[in-house]
Design a protein around this nucleic acid. Structure first.
Length: 419
RNA sequence: GGAUGGGUGCCCGAGCGGCCGAAGGGGCAGCACUGGAAAUGCUGUGUGCGGUUUUUCCGCACCGUGGGUUCAAAUCCCACCCCAUCCGCCA
């Protein structure tokens, strides 16, 4: 959520920056400001009337005490009239307030000035590469072929049980999944100072509103029938909202959290995309990284966060590149995002395996996560999140990059103790 | 699923329809005491919105949420949400 005060103070600047995401946003800001003005005018009127009512009511009380009932009765009539006016105005006000909130909640975050301007993923900027894609002296196979032949990936039974984009894994596949989770959690807790967390995977709408998935992206989520709960699309939601509605102490910051959770996404808009294999599933495992920090450190923390996610790929010796998302490709809550893309031999290109974002105070404002400074003043924290990493995609990348000519694949050295 | 209790400030907790933004305690900050500290004492300390000569000050709102009663609601009534405990059921 953007700060309405910021929008009021610099409407043109805000519109200009939002337009780099989406050309339709400036008009929405105009509408918001219009409603805001009406709303404030009404608030002023209502408050004046309420102040009057309060004053007169007190006088009535005193009159009764002094046994001047007649005069009290007279005043009552007047207060009744004022109360009626207040009611009328309040009704209008609550309408406006509703619209106001609804629009404000649907406006995405402002891109950081350093974010490259662009329309879609083609305008993303490569920041660096690590590792050399392996030269194969045979035709590398896609992971689904390897997996099916080895009998470790079972798409048919996945579909039988749950539908398309669900997969069953056996033996080496299932064990590798588990090994990767442990490996990643150990790395982040032991080397990078994160606190390991285990969270529910069913969450309330409040949490999803806090991190920005709701109200706008309901169609991407699985909702539990007959309960007001949703399946977690990412542990960013549960980890960030651990501190929903809290005022933290300054010395508690920064907080680093990591959690393994399954993630559930409907993939509503992506029919026909990446339909083969396990790249895009309705259910996948992820180890998530979340940081809650003071505003002045957040960009430094973002760079660190990306490095921490990269470390996983470096240790697994998987080639990757880091790209900076352009304005048009930024997620709703993000002010700045780096994607890490791992090399996929069968596609002869890099594919996203992690996305690391600084949302600044956008989520903090929605989730009401603040901290109190030394002077006793409250400020919104900055929140960051990143995959560290998407486990299924890591598994896929290992299968393809470490494949052998006979249709099997090797296990990266660092995982030997885990499997 | 059945029964009961409860949601008040950073935390705990009291609160007769007007004098309650709200007692008391804890925490935190400042000061005093001390060689320094602990202990102790004193003082201060909610949030949001709106206005403002924008350091200041003023107004309004907020005691889970939304309605209602009343001249006046944290306090009374109704609905909803949430939490806890017990019983049943299940792992």
């Amino acid at each position: 959520m953007l700060d309405i005060k910021l929008i009021r103070a610099n409407p043109e600047e805000v519109k200009k920056r939002l337009a780099t995401r989406d050309k339709n946003l400036p008009a929405l800001i105009d509408k918001l400001l219009e409603i805001d003005q009406q709303r404030r005018e009404l608030i002023k009127q209502v408050e004046q009337l309420q102040a009057q009512r309060k004053k007169l009511s007190k006088e009535i009380g005193i009159l009764y005490k002094n046994k001047q009932a007649e005069q009290a009765e007279q005043l009552k009539g007047e207060v009744n009239r004022i109360a009626q006016q207040i009611n009328d105005l309040k009704e209008k006000l609550s309408q406006l307030e509703k619209q106001f909130q609804q629009i404000l909640l649907s406006i995405p975050n402002l891109p950081h000035p350093s974010v490259p301007i662009g329309e879609d993923e083609n305008d993303n900027v490569e920041v660096r590469r690590w590792g050399e894609p392996r030269k194969f002296n045979f035709q590398p196979k896609p992971h689904w072929e390897i997996g099916e032949k080895l009998g470790i990936l079972d798409f048919e039974r996945g579909a039988k049980l749950s539908g398309s984009r669900f997969t069953v894994m056996y033996n080496k596949g299932a064990r590798l999944e588990r090994a990767l989770i442990n490996f990643m959690l150990d790395l982040h807790t032991k080397e990078h100072g994160y606190t390991e967390v285990w969270t529910p995977v069913l969450v309330r709408p409040e949490a999803l509103i806090g991190t920005g998935q709701l109200p706008k992206f309901e169609e991407d989520l699985y909702k539990v029938c007959d309960e007001n709960l949703y399946l977690l699309p990412t542990a960013e939601v549960s980890l960030t909202n651990l501190h929903m509605d809290e005022i933290l102490k300054e010395e508690e910051l920064p907080k680093y959290y990591t959690a393994y959770t399954p993630c559930f996404r409907r993939e509503a808009g992506s029919h026909g995309k990446d339909v083969r294999g396990i790249l895009r599933q309705h259910q996948f495992d992820k180890v998530e990284l979340v940081k809650i920090v003071k505003p002045e450190n957040s960009y430094q923390e973002l760079e660190k966060l990306v490095n921490e996610a990269e470390k996983v790929l470096q240790l697994l010796e998987l080639p990757y590149r880091v790209v900076e998302l352009c304005t048009g490709d930024l997620g709703f809550s993000a002010a700045k995002t780096y994607d890490i893309e791992v090399w996929i031999p069968s596609q002869n290109r890099y594919r996203e395996i992690s996305s690391c974002s600084n949302t600044e105070d956008f989520q903090a404002r929605r989730s009401k996560i603040r901290y109190k400074d030394k002077e006793g003043k409250n400020h919104f924290v900055h929140t960051l999140n990143g995959s560290g990493l998407a486990v299924g995609r890591t598994l896929l990348a290992i299968m393809e990059n470490y494949q052998t000519e006979d249709g099997d694949f090797e296990i990266p050295k660092v995982l030997k103790d885990y499997i």
